[in-house]
Amino acid sequence: MDSVFSHTIAAILTIGIISFLYKDNPLYKFCESLFIGVSAGYWFVQQYYANLLPKLFDNLGITKLVGAENAPEGALQALFLEGRLDDNLLYLIAGVLGVMMLLRLSPKIGWIARWPLAFTVGSSAGLYFITYFQSNAMSQLEHTILPLNSFNNLVLIVGTVTGIIYFYFSKEHKGVFGGAAKVGIYFLMITFGASFGYTVMSRMSLLIGRIDFLFGTWLGLVK
């Protein structure tokens, strides 16, 4: 595409989005609608080529079956040509679950769409259980077990323990316990403030990037 033309399109879209800060307007509405359409299309195509094709069709050998050149042999070729049960045949389960998902459209057997959902939810529950337990709970605790021989260690331990007390559900936050929870809140607030302050600068640089595009790349005013 011609670069002046393409940059002008990009610039109009950039201005359209920024204009929302003033108020909702037809140009923003146009940009928003275009963004929704184009991005939904983009992700559909990406998902097809990045997930469905390699993970299901290639593994099963469907790509080869429909006559695509250079396509790898899959589980179906192994089964029918070599009479061997390939591990990849298990991807058939994923394919079946995927089709079940689509059955949701049928009023009569739409309930079967709950099976792939139950599979998804069950597997995320299992996976997250372990990953959070290992990386969030165990390793954080291990690193907090420190000798109380420095001011920093003391603050770190007091902060972590009182922070955990803040989350305690089954005891009223009153008296000493309530006091500890209160200290915990202050630690949480410092944490939030720290990430807030830390992020502000990086967000500013994003804006500078777009302004640089408008005045530099597009209009050529800034070199």
Partner: peptide
């Protein structure tokens, strides 16, 4: 200092809480 001490303490409390929340949630679901 704020980043590496009090901020770290708060982060750890949040992360430990999240882990326990996820564990209980996962168990309720399973």
């Amino acid at each position: 200092w704020i980043m590496s001490v009090p901020n770290m303490a708060g982060q750890r409390a949040i992360m430990v809480g999240i882990a326990l929340g996820v564990i209980a949630m996962a168990l309720r679901v399973i």
